[in-house]
């Protein structure tokens, strides 16, 4: 009964909602407020995007709590919206201060906000917090992701250091972030991690050497293709050898072996596809 009343109430409310067909137009304080009240991440994102140029100082108070929303996409759009406003500097300072505290959830959210802000002056604080083992692995992984989102090559030292983290989640995130840096040219950093005990780290290491077409990784990839217990890793190894192309020509026998005999049909097909790319 309660559910039915809720539905009816929602439908009644629906008739009162504004209806604009245009992206980036028709924003209002009320629309943002209603979206937040509804709890719909979809609606919140849509209304904040629509409010990109809305003059609405009062909306800041609505949006600020979204910094700690449980949905990462909402945190991202909140940051995107806030970075277009004067309060940005205050928010950035608050987020950097969180990185010096001990609350991992708040630090994680702060990293997400600072990443979306894309300000290079956040690289230092994020890099320092990334090495702080007081924070959970999840929080530090988000710090690495934030550095990747900022994308500035000055984050490379901190991310490289994080490759030695005891937490696999951090190592994997650091590899992924390094690959996102503009002008990054050091795929050899990933070579030792091709044999990492954690599957997600091996996958990210494969992605780095494959994306960079690092011929020096060929033997390591061949080993993974032939012997890794994870079909997922073997798939990625086959893909990477194909990406490397001619520089991985020596992998042809291993790829033929995998294409014919691997237990996973998905590995077999990717190995076959990689064989066709070795002559690039």
């Amino acid at each position: 009964m309660l559910r039915r009343m809720t539905v009816l109430a929602a439908l009644a409310l629906a008739c009162l909602l504004p209806a604009s067909a245009l992206a980036g137009r028709g924003a209002s304080y009320t629309a943002i407020r209603n979206a937040i009240w509804s709890g719909s991440a979809d609606a919140i994102k849509a209304e904040l995007e629509r409010a990109e140029t809305l003059v609405c100082p009062a909306c800041v108070d609505l949006v600020m709590p979204l910094i700690d929303h449980q949905d990462a996409g909402v945190r991202q759009v909140a940051a995107w919206w806030l970075t277009r406003r004067a309060v940005r500097t205050d928010v950035q300072n608050q987020m950097i201060a969180r990185l010096g505290d001990v609350d991992s959830v708040k630090a994680r959210n702060a990293a997400d906000i600072l990443g979306e802000f894309q300000r290079v002056d956040a690289i230092g604080p994020l890099g320092s917090a990334l090495q702080n083992s007081t924070f959970t692995a999840e929080a530090r992984a988000h710090m690495a992701q934030a550095l990747g989102t900022i994308g500035d090559l000055r984050a490379q030292p901190a991310l490289s250091q994080a490759l030695g983290s005891a937490d696999a989640q951090v190592r994997a995130a650091a590899l992924e972030a390094l690959r996102s840096l503009r002008g990054f040219t050091s795929p050899q950093l990933a070579l030792p991690l091709l044999t990492d005990p954690d599957e997600s780290v091996r996958v990210q290491a494969i992605f780095m050497v494959g994306s960079s077409r690092a011929g020096a990784a060929t033997s390591g990839l061949v080993n993974l293709l032939g012997s890794d217990s994870s079909a997922n890793v073997r798939k990625k190894a086959a893909w990477a050898l194909g990406e490397i192309g001619a520089a991985a020509a020596s992998a042809a026998p291993a790829l033929q072996q995998a294409a014919a005999h691997d237990a996973s049909p998905l590995v077999r097909s990717l190995a076959q596809a990689a064989l066709g790319r070795l002559n690039r």
């Binding site: 809720t6 439908l11 629906a14 909602l17 209603n34 009240w37 709890g39 719909s40 609606a43 849509a46």
Partner: peptide, 14 residues
Amino acid sequence: DGPVESEVLTQAKT
């Protein structure tokens, strides 16, 4: 059928 719109659907928990 009905209000195929994410905000209303979320409010109605459907």
